[in-house]
Simulated assay, not measured.
Amino acid sequence: MIFETALEIIDRDGVDGLSIRRLGKALHRDPMVLYRYVPHKTDLLDGIAEEVLSQLRVDTTAGDWMSQLRVVAHDFRRLALAHPHVVPLLVTRPLSTPLALRPLGTLRPLEAILTLLTRAEFAPAEALDIYRSFFGFLHGHVLTELQEVVEQPDETDDVLRLGLHRLPLREFPLMRGLAPELASYDGAAELERGLDILLAGLQANLRPHGGSIDES
């Protein structure tokens, strides 16, 4: 209940809007009592990250590892869009914490994907390479998608909507020329295109131990 309520506060007011005092008020509890469960705000933030990632399901028994990674990717994107203020806790905050010191709940997707891939007969080191490439792409995608690109939503001209008219034309002709594409960004479609490229590259360069490369 503590982390669920804290997540509601962050969804509404952002990470800066969360404090033990506000959480206590929302729970109708004395803030001093909450310190028994979450001694520091960092513990609270770690618990929220675990709360969100507990919703990320990985079917470790799936027979098609690439299809399962697509499912995981879209599920992660769904969680990111549902809780945009939490994304830094999932993507950038862990980078400042040694792997073994991160909350166990944030490590379970890693273990699950390693299990999926080793069951597909990838060597553990190769499974780790796939995981790093996969989540490196996925984190970059959600951070890009959550960036606000439209400056003037009431404008009908894409260059004006995006504020690209402020860029010197001679220095940024390609960027200004891509205004329609930038303005019509489709996160789900872009994710699929990126996954096509990533998974095709992984499939071309890595093979499960039980598989073979067609040299014909």
Rank of each mutant, 00 (worst) to 15 (best):
I10S: 07
R77S: 09
T61P: 00
L79N: 04
L162A: 04
S19K: 03
E192M: 07
L116M: 02
G187W: 03
R161W: 02
L101V: 01
P88L: 08
I113L: 12
R77T: 10
L195P: 03
E50R: 03
V58A: 03
L191A: 00
H139G: 14
A200E: 13
L138G: 01
H165A: 12
I2A: 04
T115S: 12
R170H: 12
L90S: 04
F135G: 02
F122E: 05
L128A: 12
R12V: 09
E190L: 07
L79Q: 03
R108M: 13
H139E: 15
V87A: 02
M1S: 12
F137C: 05
A100L: 10
I197G: 00
L206I: 11
D186M: 08
T106D: 03
Q55T: 04
L143V: 15
D16L: 11
T118H: 07
P208R: 03
E155G: 02
A100H: 12
M1T: 07
G105C: 07
V87L: 04
A200F: 06
D43M: 04
P153C: 09
R193I: 00
M32P: 00
A82D: 09
H209W: 01
L116C: 01
L202E: 06
A26H: 03
G24T: 06
H74D: 03
L162Y: 03
R12H: 13
M175H: 08
P31M: 10
A189Q: 12
P109I: 09
R207V: 14
I213V: 14
S96E: 11
L143G: 00
F137R: 05
I2V: 15
R170D: 15
L195F: 09
P94I: 11
T115F: 01
R207Q: 14
L18W: 01
P88W: 06
E121V: 01
R176G: 04
M32I: 09
F76K: 02
G163C: 13
P124T: 02
D214Q: 12
T106K: 00
Y131E: 11
P180R: 08
L195M: 11
A49N: 02
L178R: 11
E151P: 00
R102D: 02
A204Y: 04
P31S: 10
R22Y: 03
Q147M: 13
T5I: 13
R119V: 02
A6M: 06
E126V: 13
E171P: 00
